[in-house]
Structure formats: structure tokens, C-alpha cells
Simulated scan of single mutants.
Amino acid sequence: MTILILEDNATNALILKRLAGKVTDEDILVEADGTRALSLCHNTLFSMLIVDHMLPGMTGLQFIKAIRMLHRYDEVPVIMVTADQDPKLRETATATGVTGFLTKPVDAVTFRDLLAAHVGYKPAALAAAR
């Protein structure tokens, strides 16, 4: 299976990809553009999404709302990465379907623990595809 990281900052994307690679042997795809990431999600069922909140053209919340409209993504874990500490953002994100949060700068141990909690999780749609 494959994890999608949606992050427009190349340095942050590289850090997230390297940290994820220490937790899982799943393929990891990085995309910087939300619109292209949505297209990818229409064509590929990713096992997990790691989404930056601040993206050019759309927010991470807008991306997640669009993803949750695709029923095959109902159970796919979505981790939001944000520097925003506002509790209202977290409430809104949770209501939108975010299953976990990472605060920037990302703490390596917290990231690995959060990812490890979801790695190996197989939503019904993924299990049926096998």
C-alpha cells in the first residue's frame, strides 16, 4: 500500500517522508499541490494521508472535506500537520474527519508514535481490494 504526504514545503516533505520511512515499509508518495493530490486520490486508494494545513490554492481542511466525500476514504486515517495551535481548528478538523494531529515543527518521536498507531490499519475498502 502507499501513504500520501501532501506538503508544499520541500524540506518539510522530505523530513516527513524520512520519518515515515523509519516506521513503515509502505511506499510513500509526496505531492505539493492539493488539486493534483485530489486527482491522485480519485485514481489510487492510499492507506494513509498526511496533510499539511496551509497549502497554496486550498487548505488542508478543504482537501480533507473533498476526500471524505469519496466513500472509499471513509476509514482511511488522515493526519493533519499544522503550526496552528487554535483549538477551533482542531475541533473543525476532527469533525471533518482528521484522525490525528502533528504540530510543526514535527517532533520525530510523536510522529513515529502517531504513524505507528495507524500503520497496518486496513480499512474495509483496502481489504476488499486485495
Rank of each mutant, 00 (worst) to 15 (best):
M1K: 13
I3H: 10
I3R: 09
I3N: 10
I5S: 08
I5T: 07
I5Y: 02
E7Y: 07
D8V: 01
N9F: 09
T11Q: 05
N12P: 07
A13T: 11
I15G: 01
I15W: 11
K17S: 03
K17A: 14
K17D: 01
R18K: 15
R18L: 09
R18W: 04
L19H: 06
L19F: 02
A20W: 00
G21S: 08
V23Y: 09
V23C: 07
V23E: 13
D27M: 02
D27R: 09
E31Q: 13
D33Q: 11
G34R: 01
T35W: 02
R36D: 06
R36V: 03
R36M: 01
A37G: 03
A37P: 01
A37W: 06
L38H: 10
L38E: 03
L38W: 09
S39Y: 02
S39C: 04
L40N: 10
H42Y: 11
N43W: 13
T44D: 06
T44H: 15
L45R: 14
L45S: 14
L45P: 15
F46S: 08
S47I: 12
S47V: 11
M48P: 11
I50M: 06
V51T: 15
V51W: 08
P56Y: 05
G57Q: 05
M58E: 01
M58P: 06
G60T: 10
L61C: 07
L61Q: 14
F63L: 08
K65M: 02
K65I: 00
I67W: 08
I67C: 12
I67Q: 12
R68N: 15
M69K: 10
M69C: 03
L70A: 12
L70Q: 15
H71K: 08
H71A: 07
R72L: 13
R72A: 13
R72N: 08
Y73F: 15
Y73R: 15
E75C: 11
E75G: 13
V76W: 14
I79Q: 04
M80N: 01
M80R: 09
V81A: 04
T82M: 01
A83V: 04
A83T: 07
D84Q: 12
Q85G: 05
P87C: 01
P87D: 01
P87R: 10
K88T: 12
L89S: 04
L89A: 15
R90C: 04
R90E: 00
R90N: 03
E91H: 11
T92A: 06
T92C: 05
A93G: 13
A93P: 10
T94I: 06
A95L: 12
A95F: 08
G97L: 15
V98G: 11
V98C: 09
V98Q: 02
V98T: 09
T99Y: 12
G100C: 07
G100I: 05
F101S: 02
F101Q: 02
F101L: 03
T103S: 12
K104T: 00
P105L: 00
V106M: 01
D107W: 00
A108G: 02
A108H: 04
V109M: 03
V109Q: 05
T110G: 00
T110E: 09
F111Y: 08
R112D: 03
D113C: 05
D113K: 00
L114Y: 08
L115N: 06
A116R: 14
A116T: 09
A116Y: 07
A117R: 11
H118G: 02
H118V: 00
V119N: 13
V119A: 14
G120K: 12
Y121P: 03
P123R: 13
P123F: 03
P123E: 05
A124V: 07
A124W: 10
A125N: 09
A128I: 07
